[in-house]
Design a protein around this nucleic acid. Structure first.
Lengths: 127, 127
DNA sequence: AATTAAATTAATAATCATTATTATTATTAG
DNA sequence: CTAATAATAATAATGATTATTAATTTAATT
């Protein structure tokens, strides 16, 4: 199954790579739909899964059990707002872990650190 | 809405609190179903959501987009096997983070650190 | 202990994110 | 250009989770 070039895939990837908003599949779909009315939601999902499988993007589990996507592969962590569902980047340096403790369990491919809470934007709205 | 005692809820909580397996809702359901044939899956979900809302349990997003539950509230982290879906405890001491960086974003209630990879058990099977 | 009120449940239907199917279209190879 | 095959659009199907509702259980009150 040799991969063929696909304009759709390119659009989806470029959109994901060009935003810091950690969108969910549907948000990407809606954003690209306007320029491209024939775009199908399943195509977005299919390509996102492909990116993840290829290691070109990662999934971030968000609030409300919706998956968000991120094409930023540099070490960074996330803040997930339990109220609005937005995901923010947290610019920490990568954390060093006890490798021996992890080796006892398995081989780590990557890690995700997510802080859960209420973002300042929502906090202010709640006043 | 004053909470009333419920034998079902108690069973579900005790099961969750008594295991280190980070089960998903359906696993809890199946485990308790044998002693309690009239147990309903929705009841398991409802009570698990309640525990989470009350802070008596946390959700851990597992592989295959299934949610696992953990009633162990002590600081500890997780390893999620991408092959078998099992979730393991990682016994690190809690990590100290740059509070100022986080305050810029919002108020943190808790954090989850998940290592993704292949567990040793699966690795050996793959040989 | 019986009565009432309210919370909880069982059973099941509904929802919603995600995935699979299939006929059609686009891309690449020959 | 034609054949082969990957990708898509449209839609149906799946599967985890949530909502509904009538019946049951619990707790308070008489």
């Amino acid at each position: 199954m040799k991969e063929k070039y696909s304009a759709r895939r390119e659009q989806i990837y470029q959109y994901l790579a060009g935003t810091k908003n950690h969108p969910e599949a549907e948000q990407i779909y809606l954003a690209l739909k306007s320029e491209n009315p024939s775009l199908s939601l399943a195509t977005v999902y299919r390509n996102l899964s492909k990116f993840v499988a290829e290691g070109k993007a990662v999934e971030i589990p968000g609030a409300n059990h919706v998956i968000h996507f991120d094409a930023n592969l540099e070490d960074h962590y996330h803040f997930s707002c339990q109220q609005c569902g937005r995901i923010y980047d947290v610019d920490f340096p990568a954390i060093a872990f006890n490798a021996k403790e992890l080796e006892k369990i398995g081989q780590v491919q990557r890690h995700e650190l997510v802080f859960y809470g209420i973002c300042n934007q929502c906090k202010n709205k709640n006043l």
